[in-house]
Write a protein that binds this DNA or RNA. Structure first.
Lengths: 114, 114
DNA sequence: CCCATATTTCAATGATTATCGAATTATGAG
DNA sequence: CTCATAATTCGATAATCATTGAAATATGGG
């Protein structure tokens, strides 16, 4: 995982509304939530929410799929796993201490620490 | 853990130099590294490094102690644990899926998910 | 006390980010 | 085709953040 990717992900989460959105999506699980539902749930104008969702998507933290007129967003647990692994890489000089973070790990998810 | 605290921590990590510093400190373990050593290791002017270290400290991600003329910084693994727990709270609607993240967990470290 | 080292604070500048109404694009129903 | 709904893009503005040299504040040695 590259440092630029990690910075984008952390920066995406470091914002009140985006953090709230991500946590809602983590709780919602694979079913996800529509953009409009997220905007309403958080009391944020649709255009603002769209901006924030784009940031989260660009950071790879959420996936999006269209269902009829709605666009459904869902959390990417694999990206989250990789992010955490990166932060804790070689913890304490390399002694084994990294856990598995397995909430619905996604196919293709690797935990490489490099 | 409060959302404002989490946002401060994520924002602190969402920056090239600070992310590099934090990872260096994670690898350095409890011994930590002096401010000057960090500045030199990353090729950043001392005043810039001081600014970034202050952000990390204010976010509670690093601890500082004075040793003679140097100030030694070290990663706070407990803060990291709490951060991750917050992000994954009630993952998938509350089914058990949170791991323990125990690289040198610090005394007083709680993993409350609220 | 005087000097060198280690670090932080200050201040000014440039760059990035958040906000949100209005306009635009996409989809589906009748 | 026309209308209503769902979401995004645009554009302008305000706010926050990163950078760095210079000055200020500790600390320790002689």
């Amino acid at each position: 995982m590259e440092s630029a990717t990690v910075i984008r992900a952390l920066g995406a989460l470091a914002q009140e509304h985006r953090l709230a959105v991500f946590r809602l999506l983590v709780q919602a699980g694979p079913d996800g939530m529509a953009a409009g539902a997220l905007a309403e749930a958080l009391g944020v104008p649709a255009s603002s929410m769209s901006f924030h969702l784009a940031q989260l998507a660009h950071a790879g933290l959420v996936a999006q799929r269209r269902v009829s007129r709605s666009i459904i967003y869902s959390a990417d647990y694999g990206a989250m796993n990789r992010l955490i692994a990166y932060l804790m890489a070689n913890c304490c000089g390399g002694t084994a201490c990294l856990p598995e973070l397995d909430c619905l790990s996604v196919a293709g998810d690797d935990r490489s620490v490099a």
